[in-house]
Amino acid sequence: MHYLTFDISEGAEGITTLEAMASTSAEHHAAVLAEAQQVLDWAWQRFPHTHGPVDDGMDWDHDLQVHVEDGAWHVVTLTLAGSPRFVEEFLATFGALQDE
């Protein structure tokens, strides 16, 4: 990942939140969206049938937000909630993250 910076936080009942954010000029916006799509494509391929509320027993869920601030900065936020096995495979694929 060149643009998205992930933070990891562990919550109750074994649910971990992985949150990434990038704020760039319009010139780099497509590259940021491509990184977010890379993560989501990986998740859909590895866990195709277990997307949904993690507290209901699913392996992963996500929220993707895109905003334009002051007409210049494009902010992309990707939040993933994951089960222990999802997070383990995520870290094996994408590497170590920045802890809280």
Rank of each mutant, 00 (worst) to 15 (best):
Q38P: 00
R85Y: 09
P53M: 15
W60K: 01
W42Y: 15
Q98T: 10
W60C: 01
G82Q: 13
V68S: 14
A22S: 15
H29Y: 10
D70C: 05
D7C: 10
E69K: 09
V87W: 10
Q98W: 07
F6L: 12
Y3G: 04
E100I: 03
I15G: 04
A72Q: 05
L4F: 07
L91F: 02
T24H: 01
S25H: 03
E13D: 10
A36H: 04
M21G: 03
S9L: 12
T16Q: 04
E35I: 11
G14E: 15
T17W: 02
T93W: 00
Q65H: 05
S83Y: 09
W42P: 11
D59G: 02
H2K: 10
L91P: 00
T24G: 08
L40P: 05
L40T: 04
D61V: 00
Q37R: 14
A26C: 01
A22H: 13
H28C: 04
Q65G: 01
H49L: 15
V87I: 13
H28N: 11
T79K: 12
D61H: 06
A12G: 05
A12K: 11
R85S: 14
F90H: 05
H74R: 08
W73A: 02
V54Y: 10
T77Y: 01
A36R: 02
G57Y: 08
V75P: 00
D55W: 01
V75G: 03
Q37T: 09
